[in-house]
Amino acid sequence: MSTGPGRFAPRHGTAAAVDAGLQPERTTLSWSRTLLALVTVSAISLRWTPLYGAAILLVPGGALLGALVIGATQRRATARRVRAIHEETGITRWSGKASLVALVTCLGLVLIWLITRS
């Protein structure tokens, strides 16, 4: 029996090769789940269209925009995470998180404004 790398072992360095705990992959999946949660909020809020008219489109539009930005940035972000673990350097980033919180707060404010306006 061969003692070499298995048939499915990666030829090149991957996230698993760098970090056995799969930290970069798990973090990217966590962002992907957040993206899906934003898409869900966007889809459910479309049910408000008969109640509140066109102004409600701010909410699905904003949530979808946030989801698109997350989707567009994750490839590069994953590479940055792999590199940080490989080189044992810090990777603290605050701006993406602050933007996400600002988006969620704005969505909530628009929704509450729509309810209280009617």
Binding site: G21, Q23, P24, R26, R81, E88, G90, T92
Partner: peptide, 9 residues
């Protein structure tokens, strides 16, 4: 700077 694994967690 903390260990990148802790920051990611």
């Amino acid at each position: 700077e903390p260990d990148p694994r802790l920051t990611l967690a």
